[in-house]
Simulated scan of single mutants.
Amino acid sequence: MDRPFKIPQSVLVVIHTPALDVLLINRADAHNYWQSVTGAKDHEGESFEQTAVREVFEETGIACATGRLTDWGLENVYDIYPRWLHRYAPGITRNTEHVFGLCVPPDCPVTLNPREHTHYRWLPWREAADACFSPSNAEAILLLPQFADGCPL
């Protein structure tokens, strides 16, 4: 069975602790591509929040109920990296990414999906931004202090 094309609407979820340490995960299909949780909608009717909850659990094993998921009300529109264009319908070259934050306890366990990610690490927010391969991901992490708002769990 052929896989359907990806929907060019996705989420970016910056997972962080109250101390603003950020979880980064390394892509399995791209060496040294560190990022936050990202993922496309499964179907047009899936809300961005539903996509965020699903992707966080699929990629890290973290249930969003463990922490506090916050919609930052931000969207990034960017050109899809050429190496991944084949996943989208012909003629689709841009993606819209909706940004969320997820505050979790500092001892939150992480269980990676090995098909998607090979390693994880927690870094202070500025270091995490510097380590991201994606400019939109780095920019979102740099905004973390204004959106974390003390991060009460």
Rank of each mutant, 00 (worst) to 15 (best):
L102M: 02
A89V: 05
D79T: 14
R94A: 08
C103A: 15
I80P: 08
I92K: 14
P135L: 09
G101I: 08
Y78S: 13
F133I: 07
R83L: 09
H119W: 12
W125S: 10
R115P: 04
T111R: 14
H86R: 10
H119S: 10
D107E: 15
P135D: 13
G101E: 04
A129K: 05
H119C: 09
V110L: 02
V110I: 15
H117N: 14
C103E: 05
N76E: 14
S134W: 09
P105D: 02
P105N: 01
W125V: 03
H117E: 05
E127P: 04
P109Y: 01
E75P: 06
H117R: 04
E127R: 15
W125L: 06
N76Q: 13
E97V: 15
H117Q: 10
F100H: 00
A89H: 07
W122N: 04
T118K: 13
S134A: 14
V110Q: 03
P105S: 06
N76A: 14
A128C: 07
N76F: 15
D79R: 15
N113E: 05
H117I: 03
N137R: 12
T96L: 04
R83I: 09
E116R: 12
F133K: 08
Y81P: 09
G91H: 08
T111C: 12
D107V: 04
R121I: 10
W84I: 10
I92W: 07
T111F: 10
N113C: 06
P105H: 03
L102I: 02
Y120I: 05
Y88P: 11
L85M: 09
I92L: 07
H86V: 10
V110R: 03
P135F: 04
V99I: 13
E116P: 00
L112G: 01
F100C: 00
L102C: 02
D107N: 15
C103W: 00
W84E: 12
I80S: 08
R87A: 11
L112N: 01
R94I: 05
H86E: 11
N137A: 12
V99R: 06
G101W: 00
A131K: 14
P114H: 06
F133G: 15
Y88S: 08
H119V: 06
P114N: 07
P109D: 01
T93L: 10
F100M: 01
P106V: 04
N113P: 03
R87E: 11
T96P: 01
Y78W: 15
H119L: 14
R126A: 10
R126T: 09
F100G: 00
A131S: 14
P106Q: 01
D130W: 04
N113Y: 02
F133L: 11
Y88A: 07
S136E: 08
G101V: 03
G91R: 07
S134V: 03
C132K: 08
W125Y: 15
E116Q: 11
H119G: 05
V110F: 01
C103P: 00
P124K: 14
P82E: 12
P105I: 00
T118P: 09
T111M: 09
